[in-house]
């Protein structure tokens, strides 16, 4: 069984790329990728390791609780499982997951799977006991043995499928996406008790400090900056599209437009060196830091406006104490 119409392309965060490939192929999402990235809140996620290691880009929290609210905002039913592959129960959850991924493919929907990074399972072969897998690069389809499902060089596994859908009015979804953005902006640490990785506002501090001290991983910094620029451009394009849905959003758009205008050329200029693993010369470093400080101030203003917009509408979800969500990994 193979879903041939799924074609993942690496452009945005890998989770977004994978979800977009699956949902557009299944007719569950219609529109450009930046709309999915914006509505799901994925575009706003910004995390940085102190050393700007490459996993900064995917270390934006506990994936289950990070991704579910975003998928929920698309009106979709979703199920995921994840954990540490060293735990005794892994084998059992692994077998269950192999089954529900196969069923999902039978129903015409691929699965998001941590390779790493996130990729798409888009087919299986029960005789050979293998899944077919895409990572979004040009490499095409890879093969994954059922027995190796969830086993990778990181210590965790993750898989997510999607189901039925309800329709959510766009105004409501836009408002919720802004609230998801605020949460990311205002939560300094998403992987407590670890404090090596910061989110949102504090992520800017981590980037600026690492650049200033010159104590960073060049390749990781390049990846982080490219991802940052891509996602901020997605936010701009998303807001461009939805600005008239809520009063005051045009001003937020203006700030993100300015942010991409000032960061775009700076980041583009440093990427060639960083991608070769070369640290930046003093002058470029200083200039990049300066621009990042300006970008932080712009995003701070944008989020202050988002907070005002959000405050104009009731928010029942966030006026209650939940019984799920943020937790410490165990």
């Amino acid at each position: 069984m193979m879903l041939n119409h799924i074609q993942m392309r690496r452009e945005s965060k890998s989770f977004t790329d994978a979800a977009y490939a699956i949902l557009t192929a299944a007719g569950r999402f219609d529109g450009p990728k930046y709309m999915l990235s914006g509505l799901s809140g994925m575009a706003f996620k910004f995390a940085a390791h102190r050393m700007l290691l490459p996993h900064s880009v995917t270390a934006y929290g506990q994936w289950g609780t990070e991704h579910s609210p975003g998928i929920d905002n698309l009106g979709l039913y979703t199920v995921y499982d994840a954990g540490r592959s060293r735990h005794n129960s892994f084998g059992s959850y692994q077998q269950d997951a192999v089954n529900w991924v196969r069923q999902s493919i039978d129903s015409g929907m691929g699965a998001v799977y941590w390779i790493p990074e996130f990729g798409v399972i888009h087919g299986y072969d029960d005789e050979a006991e293998i899944f077919y897998l895409q990572d979004g690069s040009a490499a095409g389809t890879q093969v994954l043995l059922y027995d190796n499902f969830g086993i990778n060089f990181t210590s965790f596994w993750y898989c997510r499928i999607f189901g039925d859908q309800v329709s959510i009015p766009l105004e409501d979804a836009v408002l919720e996406s802004l609230r998801l953005a605020l949460y990311d902006w205002e939560t300094p640490y998403k992987t407590l008790p670890d404090q090596e990785i910061a989110s949102g506002r504090l992520a800017y501090q981590y980037v600026i400090k690492a650049l200033k001290q010159g104590d960073y991983d060049a390749g990781g910094a390049g990846y982080l900056l490219a991802s940052y620029l891509y996602s901020r451009t997605e936010i701009r394009d998303y807001l461009q599209e939805v600005q008239w849905r809520l009063p005051g959003l045009d001003e937020v758009l203006r700030l993100y437009r300015e942010l991409t205008e000032i960061t775009g050329p700076e980041i583009t200029a440093v990427l060639p060196a960083l991608s070769k693993g070369l640290k930046l010369p003093e002058s470029q470093q200083a200039s990049l830091c300066k621009v990042f400080k300006q970008a932080e101030a712009l995003e701070e203003r944008a989020m202050a406006l988002v907070l005002l917009i959000s405050g104009r509408y009731p928010d029942r979800k966030r006026s209650l104490v939940p019984r799920w969500g943020a937790h410490t990994a165990r």
């Binding site: 019984r323 799920w324 937790h327 410490t328």
Partner: peptide, 8 residues
């Protein structure tokens, strides 16, 4: 007594 992360 019941305000805790049930899922986790």
């Amino acid at each position: 007594a019941t305000a805790y992360n049930w899922m986790a």
